[in-house]
Design a protein around this nucleic acid. Structure first.
Length: 229
DNA sequence: TTCCAGGCAATAC
DNA sequence: GTATTGCATGGA
């Protein structure tokens, strides 16, 4: 087992399955151990919407925005389109950058509707204003069930602290590192997809505890298990 | 009060 | 291609 696989195993044994993506219709927003989601276009859109809203923002703030939209009966494409722009901005205000994100979301809706239910390519997504590498991978991984590993600030912080990358590592470097390592002993496509989904979620779960404030990694059992590997 | 959150685009070299 | 800056709110 390679180091990344060992890290994943330790995290999974510690925290259990996370069951991302969280959905608003559930009491606790998650569907632990149920990987049949998303199961319709509306849920795919909810993941994409959340992916944009959560940019540089805590998910608890995103939940507030989603609840605002739900309260306006606007947690859907048609719902959002029925709102006037100021009402929409106000609803997503808790997530920050509401002026930008409102533009991004409306632009994405146009793109999403043109897809007509087909699966967008990664490059295609990256051409949409407001969608960068992480957001694209978030949509593909959790919205479209495509095995594109999602790297975020936590992932970099953790890999850095464990000495597995250098400060210069780019998004695509870290993504390849994670994907290749996790794919090493997994042949089944669905199992690999679920592993990518769980792994990112577990990294966030773990990092919220040990890598949110400096100095990073104090008390982190991964650092003890893999001292400067 | 400061720091950080499940980033991205525009701009300047 | 790399570095810097603006975008904004909420919680610890």
């Amino acid at each position: 087992m390679n180091t990344i696989e060992k890290i994943y195993t330790l995290l999974y044994e510690t925290y259990g399955p996370q069951g991302w993506w969280p959905f608003m219709k559930y009491e606790d927003f998650y569907h632990i151990s149920d990987y049949s989601f998303p199961r319709d276009e509306g849920e795919v859109f909810e993941v994409c919407l959340g992916s944009i809203l959560t940019q540089n923002t805590s998910f608890s703030s995103v939940v507030k925005s989603l609840e605002n939209l739900k309260g306006l009966d606007a947690l859907s494409i048609d719902g959002i389109k029925s709102l006037d722009i100021d009402t929409f901005k106000l609803a997503i205000k808790p997530s920050g950058y509401h002026n930008q994100k409102a533009r991004y979301i409306l632009g994405f809706i146009d793109f999403f509707e043109e897809l007509g239910g087909s699966v967008p390519g990664r490059e295609e997504l990256l051409n949409v204003l407001g969608i960068g590498e992480e957001t694209a991978d978030s949509m593909l991984l959790y919205g479209y069930n495509i095995a594109e590993f999602k790297v975020d600030a936590y992932t970099k912080r953790l890999l850095l602290e464990l000495g597995l990358i250098t400060e210069k590592a780019k998004y695509k470097d870290m993504k390849k590192l994670m994907q290749d390592a996790l794919a090493e002993s997994i042949q089944d496509k669905k199992e690999l997809l679920i592993t990518y989904q769980e792994c990112h979620a577990l990294i966030v779960k773990h990092s919220k505890i040990f890598y949110s404030k400096k100095p990073y990694g104090v008390g982190c059992f991964l650092k003890e298990a893999f001292p400067l590997t």
